[in-house]
Amino acid sequence: MSNYQSIGADDFFKLVKDPNTTPAVLKEVTSDSELAKSVVADNPQLLKYFDEGVRNNDSVVLQAIKEDGTAIEHASNRIKDSKTMGTIAVRQDGNAFKHLSENLRNDPEIAVFADIVPEDLMKQYIGNSLKEKIGNAPVHAWLEGEEAKRNKAKQASPEYLAARASLKTR
């Protein structure tokens, strides 16, 4: 815990940008996860000024991406490859899709949430293996078709059918 727990996002930004801030103070504030949670709650893009350990902290990054999905750009590679975190970020802001790992940009279950991204940009952002699957088809239409197939398969699953049957007997 640092001596700077009570500073807000604006003061944090001033502190890290001030050329007179000593390296020791800079290290103290940029490695403090509790301070980071408070700062990114006010300004998620300030995540980029924290050290790698903080940018690899699930609760800090979650705080940031719940406010601004594109803040995942500043998260660690591990988090950029987390399906849970990637989904949260892209659902919050479809533009976060471009900042995810190649692995997640190949996942149609995540890509479908990037529906606000224009078609031409989506073709640039999707992963290579997903590009091969889609071919020349319109990206968003293909993704919606895949989503419909997944939903239909879920509805035919034994778990879903059992749950529906139990609801009917109540």
Score class of each variant (00 low, 15 high):
150 R>F: 10
72 I>W: 04
26 L>M: 13
49 Y>R: 01
41 A>P: 00
91 R>P: 00
5 Q>S: 14
31 S>D: 11
20 N>W: 08
57 N>C: 03
42 D>V: 00
59 S>R: 09
50 F>E: 00
46 L>D: 10
8 G>W: 09
3 N>S: 14
65 I>V: 10
26 L>Q: 06
85 M>V: 05
12 F>I: 08
75 A>Q: 01
17 K>S: 15
142 W>E: 05
25 V>N: 10
48 K>T: 08
27 K>W: 10
59 S>N: 12
122 M>H: 01
19 P>H: 11
121 L>W: 12
153 A>C: 06
103 N>E: 15
127 G>A: 09
99 H>D: 06
86 G>D: 08
151 N>R: 15
81 D>P: 04
73 E>K: 12
57 N>S: 09
77 N>F: 12
68 D>N: 10
161 L>P: 05
106 N>A: 06
93 D>N: 14
70 T>S: 10
16 V>P: 09
80 K>Q: 13
46 L>M: 08
58 D>K: 10
142 W>H: 09
19 P>Y: 10
35 L>Q: 02
67 E>F: 03
29 V>Q: 04
72 I>T: 01
84 T>F: 13
163 A>I: 09
74 H>M: 02
26 L>S: 06
112 V>K: 09
30 T>W: 08
164 R>A: 15
36 A>R: 02
143 L>V: 04
69 G>F: 02
136 N>F: 03
30 T>D: 07
10 D>A: 14
52 E>H: 05
128 N>R: 13
167 L>N: 12
110 I>V: 14
157 S>R: 11
69 G>P: 01
53 G>H: 03
136 N>T: 11
104 L>Y: 10
30 T>S: 12
22 T>P: 08
6 S>L: 14
155 Q>T: 02
11 D>N: 14
84 T>W: 12
47 L>H: 01
132 E>L: 13
52 E>W: 05
15 L>V: 11
29 V>N: 05
118 P>Y: 09
97 F>T: 00
47 L>V: 03
68 D>S: 05
91 R>H: 04
34 E>Y: 11
11 D>C: 00
125 Y>I: 02
7 I>P: 07
44 P>V: 03
147 E>R: 15
127 G>D: 07
161 L>G: 08
9 A>P: 11
88 I>Y: 07
57 N>K: 00
114 A>W: 06
117 V>N: 00
19 P>L: 11
61 V>F: 04
115 D>G: 07
23 P>L: 11
30 T>G: 06
130 L>W: 06
148 A>W: 02
169 T>K: 15
82 S>R: 00
12 F>Q: 07
112 V>G: 03
50 F>M: 00
145 G>C: 04
122 M>R: 02
141 A>D: 13
45 Q>H: 12
105 R>V: 07
119 E>K: 06
34 E>G: 05
89 A>R: 01
74 H>I: 01
1 M>C: 12
150 R>N: 11
54 V>L: 02
112 V>S: 04
103 N>F: 13
57 N>R: 00
60 V>E: 03
59 S>H: 09
125 Y>N: 06
63 Q>F: 00
161 L>Y: 10
157 S>Y: 10
10 D>H: 12
146 E>W: 11
137 A>N: 13
107 D>Y: 08
24 A>L: 12
155 Q>R: 15
78 R>H: 11
1 M>Y: 10
9 A>F: 11
53 G>C: 01
78 R>Y: 14
120 D>S: 13
163 A>L: 14
